[in-house]
């Protein structure tokens, strides 16, 4: 098999962290991020629209051996379950690949960088499960409701 060096793009057809971003805009962000970081971007795959579905992400990670890594549009495309996220970090680290998160400009490539991303997720989920009111699209909504809009 010919190893196709480069990073596979990953975009969503569902809202990300409560906001819907057109796929062409997600792709623009990926291209801009990759150009800025000298990354060869391979054609993006789009996750299925079904709620809580990560089939395409799973496949991209399985195929990682063929590539150098994956570029996600955002860290909030990772699963909501801490256990599922932990498994993804493990796959990335065990395969010596890199998981880039374009909007946030973060890269998961070792234990420290995985913890950095996980800290953001944990605070995000704690805020969204504690009954705060946050703003989504300029409308104040209960945080739990806003959280359920994403992923």
């Amino acid at each position: 098999m010919i190893k196709q060096l480069g990073y596979r793009g990953y975009i969503s057809s569902r809202p990300v962290a409560g906001g819907r971003v057109p796929q062409q805009v997600q792709n623009l962000v990926l291209r801009d991020y990759c150009a800025d970081n000298n990354i060869h971007l391979l054609l993006s795959v789009t996750e299925y629209a079904v709620a809580d579905c990560y089939t395409m992400l799973e496949q991209v990670l399985r195929d990682a051996a063929k590539n150098q890594g994956v570029v996600l549009y955002s860290l909030f495309q990772l699963p909501q379950s801490p256990v599922a996220r932990s498994r993804i970090y493990q796959i990335v680290l065990e395969n010596n690949m890199e998981l880039h998160l374009a909007v946030e400009g973060l890269v998961i490539k070792d234990q420290d960088s995985a913890q950095r991303v996980e800290d953001i997720w944990m605070v995000y989920q704690t805020i969204n499960s504690s009954g705060h009111t946050i703003t989504v699209n300029d409308e104040a909504v209960p945080a739990k409701q806003a959280a359920s809009v994403g992923n």
């Binding site: 809580d52 909501q80 379950s81 801490p82 256990v83 944990m122 989920q125 704690t126 499960s129």
Partner: peptide, 10 residues
């Protein structure tokens, strides 16, 4: 960790 593992499931 306690709160998240207790409340959120995929």
């Amino acid at each position: 960790s306690h709160q998240i593992s207790g409340e959120i499931h995929d």
